[in-house]
C-alpha cells in the first residue's frame, strides 16, 4: 500500500511538472517585426528630431506569468531624415563603431493571471529593467503593453543621454535636450511553448492541492 501511495504521489508530481512545463513561453522577434523610434527636441525653436531604426531582436520568456528577457537593437540602423545629423549622431555621439548594440532588459514584468497566447492582451503597465547604451548599463523604467494575440506591442521609456556617457549633441546653435523618448514597437512576435526552466515549488504543489 505504501508503495502504491508513493507511486501515486510520484505520478502526480510528474504530471504537475508536465503541466508547468507547458506553461512557459519563449517569445522572439526579428528586426523586420517592428521598429525602434526616438523623439528628441532641439532648442531653441523646438526642432522635433524623430529617429527610426529597424526592429529590436527580442528574446523573452514568460514563465509563471512573469516576463523576463531582453531586446537587442542595432544602433547603426537609426536614421533621422537628415544626413548630417545622422552622421553626427552615429559617429560623434553614439559612437556606433565601438558600441553597435543597445540592450533593454525587462525584469520580472508581471502578466495578468489569465494571460496565455489566446488571451495575450496586456494593458499598459509599468516595467523596470536595465538599458545598456553606449557601453553604460543603467536601471530604466517605462511602460509595456501587448495589444493582441499576434503579440503586437510596445515598450516606451525615457532616458537621459548624459546618464550613458553621451555628450549632449549640439550643432550650429541647436542643442538637443538631455531627455529622449524611446518606443520599441512590435507588429508581431513569435511565441513558442517550451518546458519551464525551473518550476517553482508552489506550482508543483498546486495540482496536488487540486486533488484534495
Amino acid at each position: 500500500m505504501k508503495a502504491f501511495l508513493f507511486l501515486a504521489k510520484t505520478l502526480l508530481i510528474v504530471s504537475a511538472l508536465a503541466v508547468n512545463a507547458a506553461a512557459a513561453t519563449d517569445i522572439k522577434t526579428t528586426p523586420a517585426q517592428g521598429d525602434v523610434q526616438f523623439d528628441a527636441i532641439g532648442k531653441p525653436s523646438m526642432i522635433k528630431i524623430k529617429g527610426k531604426g529597424e526592429g529590436a531582436v527580442a528574446a523573452l520568456k514568460v514563465d509563471n506569468n512573469t516576463l523576463n528577457g531582453d531586446f537587442k537593437f542595432n544602433v547603426d540602423s537609426l536614421t533621422t531624415g537628415m544626413g548630417v545629423r545622422d552622421d553626427h549622431m552615429k559617429n560623434k555621439y553614439l559612437q556606433v563603431k565601438d558600441f553597435p548594440q543597445a540592450t533593454l532588459t525587462l525584469k520580472d514584468f508581471k502578466l495578468p493571471a489569465t494571460w496565455n497566447l489566446k488571451n495575450a492582451v496586456v494593458k499598459q503597465a509599468d516595467f523596470s529593467g536595465t538599458l545598456k547604451l553606449h557601453g553604460v548599463e543603467k536601471p530604466i523604467k517605462g511602460t509595456f503593453q501587448i495589444d493582441n494575440e499576434k503579440l503586437a506591442g510596445v515598450a516606451n521609456f525615457e532616458l537621459n543621454i548624459s546618464d550613458y556617457g553621451i555628450e549632449i549633441p549640439s550643432y550650429l546653435g541647436v542643442k538637443v535636450t538631455d531627455t529622449v523618448k524611446v518606443a520599441v514597437t512590435f507588429t508581431e512576435m513569435t511565441a513558442t511553448e517550451v518546458a519551464s526552466a525551473a518550476a517553482p515549488k508552489a506550482d508543483v504543489a498546486a495540482p496536488a492541492k487540486k486533488k484534495k
Partner: peptide, 21 residues
C-alpha cells in the same frame, strides 16, 4: 517635423536670413 520657422531662420517668426542650421 520642423514645426517652428525659427529652426532655419534667424527670426523666430520665420522668413528672412537663414541661420547656420
Amino acid at each position: 517635423h520642423y514645426v517652428n520657422c525659427g529652426a532655419c531662420h534667424v527670426s523666430q517668426a520665420g522668413g528672412g536670413v537663414l541661420n547656420a542650421y
